[in-house]
Computed example of a mutant assay.
Amino acid sequence: MPTLSIAEVQARLPELIDQLQPGEELVITRNDQPVAKLAVQGARSVPVPGWGQGMVIIHTEDDEHLRDFAEYMPRTFHS
Rank of each mutant, 00 (worst) to 15 (best):
V48H: 08
P49G: 00
Q10A: 10
Q10E: 14
P74I: 04
T3K: 13
G54E: 06
R75Y: 09
S45W: 10
G54N: 05
H65L: 07
T60F: 05
S5N: 05
Q19F: 07
P74H: 11
F69Q: 08
V56M: 08
G52D: 09
V27P: 00
A39H: 12
D18L: 15
E25T: 12
D63V: 08
H65R: 09
P22Q: 12
L66A: 05
H59P: 00
V40R: 15
L4G: 00
G23Q: 09
P74N: 09
P14R: 13
L38P: 01
W51C: 00
T29S: 09
M55N: 03
T3Y: 02
E61A: 11
L66E: 03
I6K: 12
D62W: 07
Y72M: 11
R30K: 13
F69K: 07
G54Q: 06
E15N: 11
W51L: 09
E15L: 13
T29K: 02
T29H: 01
T60L: 05
T3P: 00
L66G: 00
A43Q: 15
Q41M: 14
Q10Y: 03
E15Y: 10
E71H: 13
L38K: 06
I17T: 14
L13W: 14
L20M: 12
I28K: 01
N31M: 07
L38A: 07
H59S: 04
P34K: 04
A11W: 06
Q53M: 05
T76V: 14
P2G: 01
D62S: 15
G54D: 04
F77E: 10
E24N: 12
P34Q: 06
R67D: 11
E8Y: 02
V9R: 03
Y72Q: 10
H59T: 08
E25A: 12
E64Y: 10
A7S: 12
L4C: 02
D62F: 03
V56K: 06
A39R: 15
D32V: 02
N31P: 00
E8L: 04
I17S: 09
L4W: 05
D62G: 10
I6L: 15
P47K: 03
Q53N: 08
G50M: 08
H65E: 09
M55P: 00
T76M: 14
Q33V: 11
D62C: 08
A7Q: 14
R30E: 13
G42D: 12
S45T: 08
P49V: 04
